[in-house]
Amino acid sequence: MIIKRAPDLTENDTTAYALYQNRREFLKFLGGAVALGTALPPLAWAKSVFSTDEKPTDFEDITSYNNFYEFGTGKDEPASNAKTLVTSPWSVTVDGECEKPGTYTLEEMLKPHPLEERIYRMRCVEGWSMVIPWQGFPLGSLLKRFQPTSKAKFVRFETLADPQQMPELKQKVLDWPYTEGLRMDEAMHPLTLLATGLYDKPLLNQNGAPLRLVVPWKYGFKSIKSIVRISFVEQQPVSSWEKANAKEYGFYSNVNPEVDHPRWSQYNERRIGEFSKRKTLMFNGYAEQVASLYSGMDLRTYY
């Protein structure tokens, strides 16, 4: 069957970029004007079933309170120091147990994947949390393109480690490059996202531009930023934090209010922008979707 292009559409019918960028404001305006008081959510993107209805954290807070040690260990440092990160051109090397290894430009990586919005909770291991409207696509759909072999049991990720762009690398706070890993089924899970933007804007450098992982049921540090390497591996990779302190940061690092960090409780969290603390939810509230991945596992042992 041949699907013909609609004959009445021309280039002039495409939405101007500026207008496209403003659609949220426009919809808000519409929503306010037409349906005063009926609380219509702005429908900028097709609403993902995985998105939360919770109020997103302020853009200002999401982009100024970051952990990105390559640009300093202070929360405010990445926002001021990450300007030196060059995100274009960008390429990602794919290697290990797959049929199609190689080095791909960012454009090649992103091209086949339609972006969608996912509003996810993000729980940091330090005891604070945010709600972030990400734009991205499922990691699984990208990984499939490289045709992982039966030996691929885990996926390992690496952040850029360029001392020219990341002056703080000389502080040997962690063993660079920043490394993270997921089990294959975790990586292929539909919740697992590769993000390229947030709040309808391309990712800012401090948030892990141009391409970062988002695994909402794990502590934030698993969601590795500014990815330059994706490796399919047979053995469970050792993440940077695990290497630094295996007793405190395990490979799984699933959000779990029952298993304390040795130094503090994970029982509750401070949502950024809120005064009181709220209870931390099992798997950060995504238990329904992901608990089955860990059935039969003792989550105290595999923390």
Partner: peptide, 12 residues
């Protein structure tokens, strides 16, 4: 505190 200039997590 008064000016709310202590960043995203003023309590911390």
């Amino acid at each position: 505190v008064w000016q709310d200039s202590l960043g995203a997590n003023p309590i911390e």
